[in-house]
Design a protein around this nucleic acid. Structure first.
Length: 560
RNA sequence: CGGAGUGUAGCGCAGCUUGGUAGCGUAUCUGGUUUGGGACCAGGUGGUCGAAGGUUCAAAUCCUUUCACUCCGACCA
């Protein structure tokens, strides 16, 4: 294609609401354009990248025996009511009524629809297993869209759903999808890791996330430094520990005026935060509970949710009503249940609130305190790996893929049964597998850029080669050579962009680099004098002169 | 949802305190000079200053309301 036929609105400056590098570069390179918060249009260059990513996903999914379908974006409420998610889902689910007043929603995912299809058409166990996928726009009304297409409200996702007669069959497909995802992310040229994950609101048992490693990632992932253990921080579990210390000091109440945070108390008493115990009060369906954690640890809300069901932190008024003093809540003399994190339960001679205004206890110990132990906290760097090998290292990741074993949650709700070998109806067992297509693009850019712009992995670049002729509109010789090379590339099936604009060299160079096209051929009168063309790779500063006659084969060798 | 901030030309911003007919850079258009790393000169196009209401002889500027966008937070008791 020729540049003058394309809309490539490159910009020198990024809009100042673009925080992360991928967002800035996608705007500056003219890949996307913002319509409203969390809604983006894909411009021609962006669409080319999108299509590349989709093509790789399609090829690998097809290879794995999955079949492509396409389901509606808008879905009737009845389906969601049947699965129970109409009420379960919060405001993230965009709901609306049609002209007859019937309830609909914009699909944030398609379990209900695909399971309805399965219920309609899957009759016999002989048809199983089957794996359906689609590449489709999803809508999630995010609390806070940000980072461009990384967390947008409308986005494109490849989602697939498999149906099985039994768990063994599901396990096989799950493993096949795991491998397929690795193949896809390998081909996309990304540095990624599969990690153990929580299955979240979709429900189900076994689950892995695929994370692209990047400092701007929104998730924390934990790795063992000695084994191949890898898990989302939410999913790292700890077990009960042995008490190894002995109480040595005597308990004392000290004045800690206005020191209401762990940090302030630790500073004030000149001790480490890990020597403190903090007490949180939560409100559950079964009343208020007190949770005790080590000062330097954080509550893991998913673990708490699993233990207590729906809960929220108690409000100031609720704390007051329990006769507790916010900022000075301790573990002694509580009138409500106390649940203590495993790692807090093994502390000796610690500091905690005194349950009196402006006072904390020092040298406190657990004797005489009634409590239950549980795993309540998030992992921190340096924790022992749960598999017993090595210590945990924490890195940031962008979640680009997620695979789940759903079990029968949806197939039961939507009555997706088949007749089994015995002639009786069997509820199918399901798996589900997603890839954030648009997020993959942002993640790829987060991992591949320099101060001049994007450095696209070859597999997803909008073009493989850009031809930059200098003085295309003045030098008939340069024009003839450029057109010739362009034709040769086209005939050879190479995706080539000819920059035929009447621009100065600097602008064309800058734009081609901003766009991240992997290979560049420069044609100029000076090179033509020697019968040469200049080649430069986007990811390498060296320029190479190539004989014009050999230019095509030179490029072919590099793009293949 | 809570807190903070910002809305002025496609993009980046100034002007607002102290009201007086709207500006800079960049982009864009025309002409010319340039031509291997975002050129230079000259001329031009483009904004109901987010919206509504109010105060005033006069509002981008002051007041009220509202909308949008962005950031931080929504475990540290």
């Amino acid at each position: 294609m020729k540049t003058t036929n394309l809309l490539i609105p490159t910009q020198k400056e990024a809009p100042n609401d673009a925080q992360v590098i991928s967002h800035q570069l996608m705007i500056r390179a003219g890949l996307i354009s913002k319509l409203a918060s969390g809604l983006y249009s894909y411009l021609p260059m962006g669409v080319r990248v999108l299509k590349k990513v989709e093509a790789i996903i399609r090829q690998e999914m097809d290879k794995a025996g999955a079949q492509e379908v396409l389901m509606p974006v808008s879905q009737p409420a009845e389906l969601w009511q049947a699965s129970g998610r109409w009420d379960q889902y919060g405001p993230e689910l965009l709901r609306f009524k049609d002209r007859h007043g019937r309830d609909f929603c914009m699909g944030p995912t398609h379990e209900e629809v695909i399971t309805t299809l399965a219920a309609q058409y899957l009759r016999s166990y002989k048809q199983l297993p089957m794996n359906f996928y689609q590449i489709q726009t999803k809508f999630r009304d995010e609390i806070r869209p940000r980072f461009g297409v990384m967390r947008s409200r409308e986005f494109i996702m490849k989602d697939s759903y498999s149906f099985h007669l039994d768990q063994d069959s599901l396990q096989q497909t799950y493993e096949l999808m795991h491998q397929t995802y690795c193949n896809i992310f390998d081909r996309l040229g990304l540095d990624y890791r599969p990690v153990l994950a929580d299955s979240g609101s979709i429900g189900g048992d076994s689950s892995h996330e695929f994370h692209v490693l990047a400092d701007s990632g929104e998730d924390a992932i934990c790795f063992s430094d000695e084994s191949d253990y890898a898990a989302n921080i939410e999913k790292v579990t700890f077990s009960k520990q042995e008490v190894t210390c002995q109480a040595q000091t005597t308990e004392a109440q000290v004045l800690t005026k206005k020191k209401t945070s762990i940090e302030a108390v630790a500073d004030f008493l000149n001790i480490d935060q890990s020597e403190c115990i903090k007490t949180l009060i939560i409100k559950t369906e079964n009343g208020f509970k007190a949770l005790a954690l080590r000062g330097d640890h954080e509550l893991n809300e998913i673990k708490a949710h699993n233990l207590f069901g729906e809960f929220e932190l108690a409000s100031d008024d609720e704390i007051k009503s329990l006769d507790l003093k916010k900022g000075f809540i301790g573990i002694k003399g509580l009138s409500i249940d106390l649940i203590v994190d495993y790692s807090a339960a093994v502390l000796c001679d610690f500091v905690c609130g005194a349950n009196e205004w402006d006072h904390h206890l020092t040298g406190a110990n657990w004797q005489d305190v009634k409590f239950i132990e549980a795993d309540l906290r998030n992992a921190v760097e340096g924790d022992a790996s749960p598999d017993g090998k090595g210590k945990l290292v924490i890195k940031r990741g962008i979640e680009v893929g997620h695979i789940f074993q759903l079990g029968t949650k949806y197939s039961e709700a939507m009555k997706a049964n088949v007749i089994g070998e015995s002639g009786k109806a069997v509820t199918t067992t399901m798996g589900c597998y997603g890839i954030g297509v648009t997020r993959v693009i942002a993640a790829a850019i987060e991992q591949n850029y320099d101060d001049r712009g994007i450095i696209f992995p070859a597999s997803i670049a909008p073009f493989q080669v850009v031809i930059v002729p200098i003085n295309y509109n003045k030098s008939t010789r340069v024009k003839a050579l450029a057109d010739d090379l362009y034709q040769q590339c086209l005939e050879a099936g190479i995706e080539v962009l000819l920059d035929d604009r009447k621009e100065r060299a600097g602008i064309m160079f800058a734009d081609s680099e901003l766009l991240g096209i992997p290979h560049r051929m420069v044609l100029s009168d000076t090179h033509a004098d020697n019968g040469n063309v200049e080649y430069k790779a986007r990811n390498n500063a060296d320029k190479i002169e190539v004989r014009f006659e050999e230019a095509l084969s030179f490029i072919q060798a590099r793009v293949s």
